[in-house]
Simulated assay, not measured.
Amino acid sequence: MRTPPQRFEILVVPEHVVGHDGTFRPEDAIRSAVVEATGEWGASGYPRYAGEGVVADIDPATRTVEALLVDGAELDYGLTVRVADAPRN
């Protein structure tokens, strides 16, 4: 069994810049945050990650964000979130 990643980068992207095939350029993100595994499980049943004002339940196998709060609030309409590998320090 593979160990889930301990860090991800969350990118908040306006929906209008995401292509029809789901692609986008990371530089189009209006906000990004590196989140780290908290060791907790979210209400969604997936591991919880947190950092830089972002709390997310992420399925590490598919990189699907199952729940997300940015500064304690849900995303506004017209925004979407993507998961990327966290930058190396």
Rank of each mutant, 00 (worst) to 15 (best):
M1K: 03
T3D: 08
P4V: 08
P5Q: 13
Q6T: 13
F8V: 00
E9D: 08
I10F: 06
I10E: 00
V12M: 05
E15D: 09
V17F: 07
V17A: 10
G19P: 05
D21R: 11
F24I: 00
F24Y: 15
R25Q: 12
P26M: 10
D28K: 01
R31L: 04
R31G: 02
V34F: 06
E36W: 06
E36L: 13
A37R: 12
A37Q: 11
T38M: 07
W41Q: 14
A43H: 14
A43Q: 15
G45T: 13
Y49P: 04
Y49K: 05
G51H: 04
E52H: 04
E52Q: 15
V54W: 00
V54N: 06
V55S: 11
D59N: 15
D59E: 11
A61E: 12
T62E: 10
T64V: 12
T64A: 11
V65D: 01
E66Y: 07
L69R: 05
V70M: 06
L79C: 09
L79D: 02
L79G: 00
L79M: 02
T80I: 02
V81K: 05
V81D: 00
R82T: 10
A84C: 11
A86E: 08
A86W: 04
P87L: 11
P87K: 11
R88E: 14
